[in-house]
Amino acid sequence: MEWIDSSHLSLGLFFVGLYGVISQRNVIKTIISINIMDAAAILFLITANLQPGSVPPIAGGDPSRMADPVPQALMITAIVIGVSVTAMCLALFIRMAHRYGSSDWEKIVHRVED
């Protein structure tokens, strides 16, 4: 079972999310699925090149045992971006649901007037 490490796990999670985006017709569920994909990518980056026994990169620790600080700093940014884009998606979803009276992609596409 050694192949179950964080990179394979996050890759699996990513494709679970992708499956959700393809198969779910509910708008909320697709938003959640994209968030799963985003979370998988963030998990992948945080655990990239992580050595067992390393300590968090905070001032005062032993620098030789610290984990790589770059991905951690970057992923804070990525999380913030993910949250704000999700908020935007949800806000638009409320407008769209009021307008077309449905949360089903297939029904909405036929109710959009050209």
């Binding site: 999310g17 985006v21 994209i34 998988a40 992948f44 980056l45 990239a48």
Partner: peptide
């Protein structure tokens, strides 16, 4: 947003 999730994971791979 979906495409950017692909980009983020690819970026992680490249960084690793």
């Amino acid at each position: 947003f979906l495409a950017m999730a692909f980009m983020l994971l690819g970026l992680g791979y490249l960084y690793r």
